[in-house]
């Protein structure tokens, strides 16, 4: 304060005047700081509100759906026919279709994904890796509707070339493109996991005379296993939620089948089908999308939680 007085000259009242302005400035500043903090907090809260919104909307509409349809019939019924008379609301065919697609996609994406991640992490030179990784990321960034187009314009004709009996809409074609779609995810996340395995572990093995093959399969993959498994679960969850490609390629026939060359329907494709039609708001058909959406949400949520849990639970701590 002494300095202030000297700067402002020796006029006490003037000094006090400036002093009070200064205090005001500080107080204003503090109010502003607090307001900004609260505003930023609200921004962060939006994400929580989104989750609450999703859950509430799903629960609310699903409950009124279950007033009409017994929950047991919904969960155990093997016929899904909400638009025909008599109506049937057994969700199992849709779940069946969804699992078929996810399983088929996993069969394609997991071996290819893990093999390419081993190559990129253990064999490829830095230069190759730096070129290939962004290209794979492009693959991951291609819109799903494009994959759907690719399925019907390229994969399906190819399948029907070899298996003429295959339906023009079939689970195989959709599985293959969904597999291609989730491949970069498996590859990229697994590669991250493998590369975080410390060099010292590898060097130790090499020093004992191990080959690159031994090191990859017996040291690196086991050490990175939690990250690799987590990437599988995450990718499969993505396949379960995939919409546009399966809507275009897999058909619209809910069916309890395991034949990949038949037309089927997934939960997501059903939801799209209803939205494309002119279903009146509040009708039982309209409510089905929320009930099916609820099943979808729960399935993917569980898988995401499992994926996170695997990663946390089995994380090897290297320092």
């Amino acid at each position: 304060m002494d300095r202030l007085r000297i700067q402002r000259g020796h006029i006490p009242y003037l000094s006090e005047f400036f002093h009070s302005i200064k205090l005001d400035r500080l107080r204003m500043q503090r109010i502003r700081e607090l307001a900004i903090e609260k505003a930023l907090f609200l921004c962060a809260l939006v994400s929580v509100l989104t989750t609450i919104g999703i859950v509430l909307v799903l629960i609310f509409e699903t409950l009124s759906f279950f007033e009409e349809v017994p929950i047991l019939e919904f969960l155990t019924g093997t016929t899904w026919a909400p638009t025909y008379r008599p109506q049937h609301f057994g969700v199992l065919p849709l779940i069946n279709g969804t699992i078929m697609i996810a399983a088929g996609a996993a069969v394609i994406a997991i071996p290819l994904g893990i093999a390419s991640s081993v190559y990129l992490s253990e064999y490829a030179s830095a230069k190759v890796r730096q070129t290939v990784k962004p290209v794979l990321e492009i693959l991951a960034g291609i819109p799903t509707v494009v994959y759907g187009y690719f399925a019907i314009s390229f994969i399906t004709p190819l399948i029907r070339e070899f298996i003429p009996d295959a339906n023009i809409f079939n689970a195989a074609s959709a599985s293959i493109v969904v597999g291609i779609m989730i491949l970069p995810m498996v590859s990229s996340l697994s590669e991250d996991a493998m590369r975080s395995v410390p060099r010292s572990l590898r060097e130790g093995a090499y020093a004992l005379g191990s080959t690159r093959f031994d090191v990859s399969t017996k040291i690196v993959v086991p050490a990175a296993l939690s990250g690799i498994l987590a990437s599988f679960v995450l990718a499969i969850s993505r396949a379960v939620g995939e919409t546009m490609a399966v809507t275009l390629a897999a058909g619209a026939t809910p069916k309890m089948t395991l034949n990949f060359f038949e037309s089927i329907q997934t939960m997501t494709a059903y939801i799209v089908q209803v939205s494309l039609g002119d279903t009146p708001h509040g009708s039982i058909e309209y409510q089905t999308i929320f009930a099916v959406g609820m099943v979808l949400f729960i399935m993917t949520l569980l898988m995401n939680i499992v994926s996170m849990w695997i990663k946390e639970r089995y994380r090897e701590v290297y320092s």
């Binding site: 929580v48 995450l234 919409t243 997501t268 939801i271 959406g293 995401n304 939680i305």
Partner: peptide
């Protein structure tokens, strides 16, 4: 902690579920 877990979970919610939310909300 809840906000952060929630955000990473939201990143894994299928896009069509957001569509359902958008439709209702």
């Amino acid at each position: 902690r809840i906000i952060e877990i929630n955000i990473s979970n939201l990143a894994g919610v299928p896009s069509i579920v957001y569509g359902i939310l958008g439709l209702a909300l």
